[in-house]
Simulated assay, not measured.
Amino acid sequence: MTAQPAPVSFAGLHHRPGRPLLLPNAWDHASAAALAARGFPAIGTTSLAVAAGAGLPDGAGVTRERAVRLALTLGSAPYLLSVDAEAGFSDDPGEVARLAAELWEAGAVGINLEDGLGPAARHAAKIAAVKAAVPGLFVNARTDTHWAGDGDERETLRRLDAYQAAGADGVFVPGVTDPERVAALVRHTEAPLNVLYSPAGPPLARLAGLGVRRVSLGSLLYRRALGAAVDAVADIAAGRAPGGTTPSYADVRALERSVPASRSANSTG
Rank of each mutant, 00 (worst) to 15 (best):
T2D: 08
T2P: 15
A3L: 13
Q4I: 14
Q4F: 03
P5C: 02
P7W: 08
V8K: 01
A11W: 06
G12N: 05
G12Q: 07
R16H: 03
P17F: 04
P17S: 02
P17M: 07
R19Q: 15
P20F: 08
L21E: 03
L21A: 03
L22M: 12
P24D: 03
N25C: 10
W27H: 01
W27G: 01
A32R: 01
A34V: 04
L35S: 00
A37F: 03
G39A: 11
F40W: 13
P41T: 09
P41K: 04
I43T: 00
A49W: 01
G53D: 09
G53F: 05
G53Q: 05
G55A: 07
G61I: 04
V62D: 00
T63S: 13
R64W: 03
R66Q: 15
A67P: 00
V68T: 04
L70P: 09
A71L: 04
A71E: 06
T73G: 01
L74T: 01
G75N: 00
A77R: 11
S82E: 03
S82A: 11
D84V: 04
F89D: 00
D91F: 10
D92K: 04
G94S: 11
G94M: 12
E95A: 15
V96S: 09
R98M: 09
A100R: 05
E102M: 05
W104C: 05
W104P: 00
W104G: 02
E105C: 02
G110K: 06
G110I: 06
I111G: 13
I111Y: 07
I111C: 10
I111R: 08
N112A: 09
L117S: 06
L117M: 15
G118F: 11
G118P: 12
P119K: 10
P119I: 11
A121R: 15
A121C: 09
A121G: 08
R122C: 07
A124P: 10
A125K: 08
A125L: 06
A129Q: 11
V130E: 10
V134D: 11
G136R: 14
G136F: 10
F138H: 14
N140C: 15
R142S: 08
T143L: 14
H146I: 01
W147D: 06
A148I: 13
G149Y: 12
G149D: 14
E155Q: 15
L157W: 13
L157P: 03
Q164R: 13
A165L: 11
G167S: 10
A168D: 15
G170L: 08
V171I: 15
V171Y: 04
V173S: 04
V173L: 07
P174D: 05
P174L: 09
V176M: 08
D178N: 14
R181Q: 13
H188C: 05
T189R: 12
P192E: 06
P192F: 04
L193D: 08
L196Y: 02
L196N: 04
S198W: 08
P199T: 09
P203V: 10
L210T: 10
L210W: 12
V212N: 11
V215C: 09
R223G: 01
R224Q: 13
A225I: 06
A228P: 05
A229F: 11
A232C: 09
G239D: 12
P242T: 09
P242Q: 08
G243D: 14
T245N: 01
V259L: 15
P260E: 07
S262G: 14
S262Y: 05
R263E: 13
R263H: 10
S264F: 09
S264A: 13
A265Q: 06
T268Q: 08
T268E: 09
